[in-house]
Structure formats: structure tokens, C-alpha cells
Design a protein around this nucleic acid. Structure first.
Length: 278
RNA sequence: UCGCGGGGCUUCU
């Protein structure tokens, strides 16, 4: 039998606002998960005002409703509202602590993040990873590695965050050593290694790595595309763009900016005008 | 059943 809810949450997860809204409006009855899924569709659009307005119309709220709206503010860097929500919501669980922690991290609030982390009643691997990633992203790789050694279990996302930090600092040797020592590598860690070579302007090693990757996706293709563009190798950029598994707004923007960077303004404009929307 | 952490263009860093 047909499930309204499954359709609604599928649309919401894929950012199909209009379709989600149609489902929501047509549902014979709406339970709290349905309201929450619809709220997620609102927040996905990035329109905080509409999201808040919708949130205010809820017949009731649960932790998930509160956390969804909290994350919406956090993702737009409205840290004050995020904090306010965090403190006014009736209960806080681990997910919501993690979301607040990530919000501080996004804004670079090291002290707030630290004291929240230390004061947390419970920590999950995500709490540890959030703090580790924060330290790694601000260049405190040694501290990040200390966290890595202390955490109860070490996962690939934390490991990749450290790899990314090495890449960002231009420490290619350390990056490669870390990469090779990882218990296993996934698409993201391979792509970060690719970035490491690119950041050191070692595009030929990046090309080798790209060829060695067990899987690739639109992100890794776009990474290579941008790398070639930076070298002024527009032909290879265009080739990757044309043969990429898919296209999205970011890969189109990357191609447009590839043309623009290299003074090929007519082609840039042509692509820009040919884009689906905006 | 629904909410949190790692990779690509652009802005910030």
C-alpha cells in the first residue's frame, strides 16, 4: 500500500521542496514525523524565516523538531539563535549536543566547543570526531592527532579529517604516510589525497591517483577539473566536464570559472546562459 | 519511521 510518509521523507531528503509540500498538504493525517520531514524540506531550502514560520505552526514538537531548526540556524552561522534554541529546548540529547558542538566548530569558537565537549553528559564518536575535525581544520594537527589517539574508537571520517589537515598545510609527505597507514580508504579519503597533490601543484601525481581510485564520483571529477583549470589546461578540464558521470551546479560553476580564469569569457558566458536556472 | 561529524566551484577562513 502507498505510504504518504515515505514519499514525503524521500522528497524532503532530496531537497524537492515543492513535491514534499504537495505530499504534506495532501496527506489524510499528519503525525509528528511528517511535520518533521516537512520542516527538513523547509530548512533544506535555506530560508530561515520560512522554516521558523513553519516550525511555529507545529501542533507539538519533539527533540527532532527542535534539533532540525537548531541545525538550520547553525548551518547559516547564526550562532546566537542556535545557542538560544539549544538552551530553550525542553530536553537535550546526544544528537543535539553534537549539533551545538558542530555549530561552535563551524564558527571557530574553540573555547565554547571545548567547554561544551568537556561538560557533555555523554559523548559519541561523532562528538569526538567533531572536535577533532575542528582542531584539524584550524591547523592544530598535533592536537587533532592527540584526540585521535584518545578517542574510544577511530573511524575513517576522523582519520580523513587529519589527512585533510595535512593536505591543507601542504605537508605532502605526512599526508601520504597517513593515507597509506589508514586501515582502509574510501571515496572521500582518496579524494582528499588527490587534493593534497593538487595543493602542492603536483598535478601529474594527482592524475595518477585519480586513475588509481577504486571508485570516482562527481566530486572527484570536479576536483580534477578545477586542478587542470588552475594549470591553464582547459582542454583536459573540458574533457572531464564532458565525460563526468553527472553534472551539478558546482561542477558547472567550476567549468565556468575555469573558462573565466583563463580569459575565455565567451565560453564562460555561453555556459552560464545555458545553465538550467540562474 | 524523522535530527548531528570528513572531500569539489564561488564568498569567508
Amino acid at each position: 500500500s502507498f505510504s504518504w510518509y515515505l514519499m514525503l521523507s524521500a522528497y524532503a531528503r532530496n531537497g524537492k521542496f515543492r513535491e514534499a509540500k504537495n505530499m504534506f498538504d495532501a496527506m489524510p493525517q499528519r503525525d509528528l514525523p511528517a511535520w518533521n520531514a516537512m520542516l527538513a524540506a523547509f530548512t533544506f531550502t535555506g530560508d530561515l524565516e520560512q522554516s521558523q514560520h513553519f516550525f511555529d505552526r507545529f501542533p507539538q514538537w519533539n527533540l527532532i523538531s527542535w534539533t532540525t531548526i537548531l541545525v538550520a540556524y547553525a548551518q547559516r552561522d547564526h550562532i546566537q539563535e542556535t545557542e538560544q534554541i539549544f538552551h530553550t529546548m525542553p530536553h537535550r540529547d546526544l544528537v543535539c549536543y553534537n549539533a551545538m558542538l558542530a555549530a561552535y566548530a563551524r564558527c571557530g569558537y574553540l573555547e565554547n566547543a571545548r567547554s561544551l565537549f568537556l561538560g557533555m553528559p555523554l559523548r559519541s564518536i561523532i562528538s569526538w570526531s567533531t572536535v577533532l575535525t575542528f582542531l584539524a581544520q584550524v591547523g592544530l594537527v598535533v592536537d587533532a592527532i592527540n584526540i585521535f589517539k584518545c578517542m574510544p574508537e577511530q573511524d575513517i571520517r576522523s582519520s580523513t579529517a587529519i589527512l585533510a589537515a595535512y593536505a591543507k598545510k601542504g605537508e605532502l609527505e605526512s599526508a601520504k604516510r597517513w593515507f597509506d597507514a589508514m586501515p582502509y580508504r574510501d571515496l572521500v579519503s582518496w579524494t582528499v589525497m588527490l587534493e593534497a597533490y593538487i595543493d602542492c601543484e603536483n598535478v601529474s601525481e594527482a592524475r595518477n591517483t585519480f586513475g588509481l581510485m577504486p571508485q570516482t564520483d562527481l566530486v572527484s571529477w570536479t576536483t580534477m577539473l578545477a586542478a587542470y583549470a588552475q594549470q591553464g589546461d582547459l582542454d583536459r578540464s573540458k574533457l572531464l566536464f564532458d565525460e563526468a558521470p553527472q553534472r551539478d551546479v558546482i561542477s558547472c560553476n567550476a567549468m565556468i570559472s575555469a573558462y573565466a580564469q583563463n580569459g575565455r569569457l565567451e565560453e564562460a558566458e555561453e555556459m552560464f546562459n545555458g545553465m538550467p536556472q540562474r
